[in-house]
Design a protein around this nucleic acid. Structure first.
Length: 215
DNA sequence: AACTCGGGGCA
DNA sequence: TGCCCAGAGTT
């Protein structure tokens, strides 16, 4: 049924995305790998705008594992409540801070395997941290990347893991991180989950979803 | 694969 | 009021 784009069209899409969003970056505000880690944990099922609003206050006083562990779970919950899932996230963040101090001398590890051992850190969050904070190639697949890349036809993945594998195979390694951010930009502004604005989409000529819609 | 955690923004 | 948001963990 649904097919993937040709290699040629994939390159066209990547080039258009690069011209469209040449300086795409992580929109979570952070000043250290630790801050990015905590912000990304908070970002689960929550907009980055709200995360930044919470962390801009939180990090003034609490920007290290040691500082955050000065807070009780209830105190931390009250500070991050507006990010949603505050109970789970608070518990995970406190547990993660404790592990960072006990096992990593307070330094956020730079490998996906070590990061994913931390409570509240899954594959997506780990990929965001190693790619943005440590400059390592990684393809983080969130809801935007999953939806858009499959909708366009960059990949044809049944789930997040399949999608990540296919994206890494179809996209040059040096473009993984930038492409991740560019797809998010496109996904939020145009290729939205509900009512994608296909008429204004710069890559609708290549998009399999758009072609399917007009046929 | 399905279910749970969740407040806030927006139509 | 209903739907959705830079996911992860458990069953």
């Amino acid at each position: 049924m649904k097919k993937k784009l040709s290699k040629k069209d994939i390159n066209v899409v990547l080039n258009k995305l690069e011209k469209l969003y040449p300086h795409a970056e992580c929109e979570l505000a952070y000043n250290s790998p630790f801050e990015l880690l905590i912000s990304t944990i908070l970002a689960a099922q929550c907009t980055d705008v709200r995360v930044n609003k919470v962390t801009s206050e939180l990090y003034k006083e609490y920007n290290t594992p040691e500082k955050i562990l000065e807070l009780s779970q209830e105190e931390l919950e009250n500070k991050i409540r507006s990010c949603g899932f505050y109970s789970t996230k608070s518990k995970n963040i406190l547990a993660t801070c404790k592990i960072l101090i006990e096992n990593y001398d307070g330094v956020v590890p730079d490998t996906r395997e070590e990061l994913m051992k931390l409570p509240g850190v899954g594959r997506k969050t780990a990929n965001v941290v190693i790619s943005n904070a440590y400059g390592k190639p990684a393809m983080a697949v969130d809801t935007h990347v999953f939806r858009v890349s499959n909708r366009i036809g960059l990949v044809n993945g049944k789930n997040v893991d399949e999608t990540e594998q296919q994206l890494m195979k179809n996209i040059p390694k040096n473009l993984w991180t930038d492409t991740h951010h560019r797809i998010i930009f496109l996904g939020r502004r145009i290729c939205k989950a509900r009512k994608p604005i296909c008429e204004e989409c710069p890559i609708n000529e290549e998009c399999l979803y758009y072609k399917g819609k007009v046929m």
